[in-house]
Design a protein around this nucleic acid. Structure first.
Length: 258
DNA sequence: ATGGCTGAGCTACTCAGA
């Protein structure tokens, strides 16, 4: 089964690009972030024509997450976090793979910049609430997959120029510690687990030829609970969609599990 | 190199992203 995570930066502006990607890569489940639309404007028909059902937690203009799937998903939940700003940033559900019930948690973590504002405080609070929630969840169910746009650069190797980001909301030690805290609850960063020293990115910003110069960062992640590690078949960052016309600034990360 | 693109909402321009 191939599960992919992709911050599409507007599902409607990107729909042709996404459909091409689906035809090319045949994912079973797409965990999408930054869909930037309300539920009623989500292109469910486009996905249905390709054989997928959509579960959407949308919001007007900003944020928004969705699970687009060929497999049945149960116990859908968009209420994982008591979000004081009521932003649509997390959707979860259960899928059965080889008799194992796995909880899929699709997240879009707040960006948090600039760091001297309430936006940064919101990111910290959001992560704190999320970690507390996962702490409780993993006691009841140890088959958990967390995927999405974390807006966190885990280590220096995960960005082209760490110096530029060490005081940024994506690279600050305080934030990277939250990521470690989450992993220490019993997860692996699947990409880094499989690629100890490889330097690859999932995001390149739109400015100044960042893509062409490979000025990127790895901020989109798959965290898999430790007892599912044996189920990993492959993990791959697929750079193809980032090279297309009208790309998202993020590119998909693909996890194959058995 | 802290905004030089991009998208939504809307129809001039702001807000947000990372």
């Amino acid at each position: 089964m191939k599960i992919i995570s992709w911050n599409v930066n507007s599902v409607r502006a990107r729909i042709d690009n996404i459909k091409e990607y689906i035809k090319d890569s045949s994912p079973d489940i797409l965990l999408l972030q930054e869909i930037k639309t309300q539920n009623e404007n989500f292109p469910i028909n486009d996905f249905e024509e390709l054989g997928y059902k959509s579960h959407v937690f949308g919001q007007k203009s900003y944020n928004g997450v969705a699970i687009v799937t060929k497999y049945e998903i149960n116990n859908l939940d968009t209420d994982l976090i008591k979000d004081k700003l009521k932003q649509s940033r997390v959707i979860s559900g259960e899928v059965k793979i080889n008799k194992k019930k796995i909880e899929l948690i699709n997240i879009y973590v707040p960006n948090g910049n600039p760091v001297d504002t309430e936006k940064y405080e919101y990111k910290k609070e959001w992560l704190k609430k999320f970690i507390n929630n996962i702490k409780k969840k993993i006691k009841k169910n140890s088959n958990i997959l967390i995927a999405g746009d974390f807006n966190i650069i885990p280590e220096e190797i995960d960005v082209h120029d760490f110096k530029r980001y060490e005081n940024d909301a994506l690279g600050r030690l305080e934030i990277r510690k939250k990521y470690r805290e989450l992993i220490n609850l019993g997860f692996k960063d699947v990409y880094r687990f499989k690629n100890k020293a490889k330097q690859e990115y999932t995001f390149w910003d739109y400015f100044a030829g960042s893509w062409q110069k490979n000025y990127g960062m790895r901020i989109d992640h798959f965290l898999l609970s430790n007892n599912l590690i044996e189920n990993i078949k492959s993990i791959k960052i697929n750079k193809k969609p980032r090279a297309k016309e009208k790309p998202s600034d993020h590119t998909p990360i693909e996890l194959e599990i058995i």
